[in-house]
């Protein structure tokens, strides 16, 4: 049996007195799409950043394909990563095509070829060629999200991470982004972790779902089981109720 593509064991992270992650155990199989759900401020983004190495965990381990991430050279892992940030995080000093082709340009690809590839990738996320020469500030929120997704998938990553991909979008655009993420995962065969509190994202993107609360994974199961999990945490989350084990005071 092959090692999980991404695995965390007893992952812990505190900020001052606040224990955000309190022993997270996760395993994501190669090619699997895991969606981590949980309320705002429950540490979902912190979990993602600890896996990526953007934050240093206080304890526990992160393993990538069976090897400790701490022992990997940063580029050995990050060269195979695509990341969609909550706000897009497009470089606003660069036009859209240079954002999308960032890795290619950095690695010395000819600008003409890099631009062509960027326009092709933009087309894959439904953005027309004319957007290539615009700056991120000239795009709408939904277009920025799609351009950011194009940047994330441009180098055909083996690992795709999405942080609140539908935050701030209307339901129709959110559906478009969810479908694009699912298509990208299917087409690339990438292992994906998506952070969200949007149930539509869960139903579209997830193979498996983990619910994070109080610094721990409270429930994990297949996406299809989320509506009849029998778990009080999941039922409260799905119902959007203020009554249940998930505290509304965070």
């Amino acid at each position: 049996m092959s090692a999980p593509a991404i695995e965390t064991r007893a992952l812990r992270k505190t900020f001052g007195d606040l224990r955000v992650l309190d022993g997270i155990d996760l395993a994501v199989a190669p090619g699997e799409s895991l969606v981590v759900i949980g309320g705002s401020g429950t540490g979902k983004s912190v979990l993602l950043k600890c896996i990526l190495g953007l934050l240093q965990p206080d304890g526990g381990t992160v393993r990538i394909e069976g090897r400790s991430r701490a022992a990997l050279a940063p580029r050995d892992f990050l060269d195979r990563v695509g990341m969609l940030f909550q706000g897009g995080a497009l470089f606003d000093s660069l036009p859209v095509w240079q954002n999308v082709a960032f890795r290619h340009l950095r690695d010395g690809m000819a600008r003409v070829e890099a631009r062509e590839r960027a326009i092709e990738t933009l087309g894959r996320v439904g953005l027309p060629p004319r957007t290539a020469d615009l700056y991120p500030a000239e795009l709408s929120g939904g277009m920025q999200k799609r351009a950011a997704l194009a940047r994330a998938i441009a180098a055909e990553p083996a690992f795709l991470f999405c942080d609140e991909p539908t935050a701030g979008l209307d339901p129709i655009l959110a559906g478009v982004i969810n479908r694009l993420i699912r298509d990208s995962v299917d087409r690339l065969g990438a292992t994906a972790i998506t952070i969200t509190h949007d149930l539509t994202t869960v139903r579209t993107v997830a193979d498996r779902v983990a619910l994070l609360d109080g610094g721990r994974i409270r429930w994990m199961g297949p996406a299809a089981a989320i509506d009849h999990s029998g778990d009080a945490h999941v039922e409260q989350f799905v119902a959007g109720s203020d009554r249940g084990p998930i505290s509304t005071l965070r």
């Binding site: 940063p74 990050l78 695509g82 990341m83 995080a89 470089f91 940047r151």
Partner: peptide, 13 residues
Amino acid sequence: VTEQIDALVTLST
């Protein structure tokens, strides 16, 4: 603040 520096890191830069 807008996570562009984090984005650079994830682009292995």
